[in-house]
Design a protein around this nucleic acid. Structure first.
Lengths: 187, 187
DNA sequence: GTCTATAGGCAGATAGAC
DNA sequence: GTCTATCTGCCTATAGAC
């Protein structure tokens, strides 16, 4: 049960949580409204459809990640920013092994030809890739190289997260993150 | 429409195809039965529940992969077996970028605490990891190292597949597979 | 054994009272 | 504006005719 804030905000928070833990399809509006302390039918006063609520969830996640990147940009050097990105997966290892990546799982579920939600979720990956690319460029790589390194790093972390969940093993993720960190430190 | 074979087999084939392309939840029994040319209600003569049909699909995929590994074991050397594994992703790049990995997507969707289907799907990953580990051992790595290398290789390919789908770009997968192949050849 | 018809339940969405 | 009650549709599953 999400308390405080206006109802629209509470609905988005509750949806964010339930969609992450149960997946989009399994997160029913009844559950979401219940968790937000809002009557079921009233959801439609704030959101036209379930999809538009999901869209708000995706936008919220995007803002949270953007804030984190901005914070790192202000306080860390490029190499430590990338290491911080990897450490983020390690810190969240429990949730990641249980429910997957908040972006990756969503993309996997919503990606259907012509689905706007799938494209919106994919955009979150693009923003991380752009930011990672900038860090690798700052570390002296060409733009082309930086793009490839970013894709490689994100790929291995996404894959490790997926495997950690599939095999129900936190270690799978922690080990691969350690290898990725060692690689970054060797650059 | 799947033709030929007994009805049970046709149902599994149709389910395999539709679950892969649409996901488990979206693949309705009506669609599956329709594609198999079997009356809807009749599905329950062959399978107790939708879950047991999914279980048969997972078992079928497992047998297909096992046959492929056996074939490579008979015809290729360890290094070429691993390269063949990577090439499998490149060959299937279109489908992978469109619908994801037949194992990974399933694990992502079905992995819920206490779900038997999630564990069955995860088992398919275990079988590939065991086989990959044997190849790395044959290439001279310790058992411990071989396990880590296997997880790393599978992680990056799974992640690249996920990203290729999310970004709707075949290149993401092809590029990462090329880097992985170069790594194997350098061992 | 094979299939038709339908039950039962739950989801998203709406209409209209307050 | 806020909420209650309900509607429609779809999906899994079953009961029972042939």
């Amino acid at each position: 049960m999400v308390a405080g804030g206006d109802k629209r905000t509470r609905l988005v928070q509750a949806a964010d949580d339930l969609v992450y833990r149960n997946g989009y399809a399994s997160a029913t509006l009844a559950d979401i409204a219940g968790a937000a302390g809002v009557p079921v039918g009233n959801v439609y006063y704030y959101f036209r459809t379930k999809e538009s609520l999901a869209s708000a969830v995706i936008a919220t996640r995007g803002r949270v990640y953007a804030a984190r990147r901005d914070d790192w940009d202000r306080t860390l050097q490029p190499r430590d920013r990338v290491l911080g990105f990897i450490a983020m997966s390690v810190d969240a290892r429990r949730d990641l092994a249980l429910s997957g990546c908040p972006i990756g799982s969503l993309c996997s579920e919503l990606q259907k030809p012509g689905s706007p939600l799938g494209a919106e979720a994919g955009q979150l990956f693009c923003e991380w890739l752009d930011w990672l690319g900038a860090q690798f460029e700052a570390l002296g790589h060409s733009r082309r190289d930086a793009g490839a390194q970013s894709l490689h790093l994100l790929s291995r972390l996404q894959g490790a997260t997926l495997l950690a969940r599939a095999l129900r093993s936190v270690d799978v993720l922690v080990d691969e993150a350690a290898r990725a960190s060692a690689w970054i430190e060797s650059l």
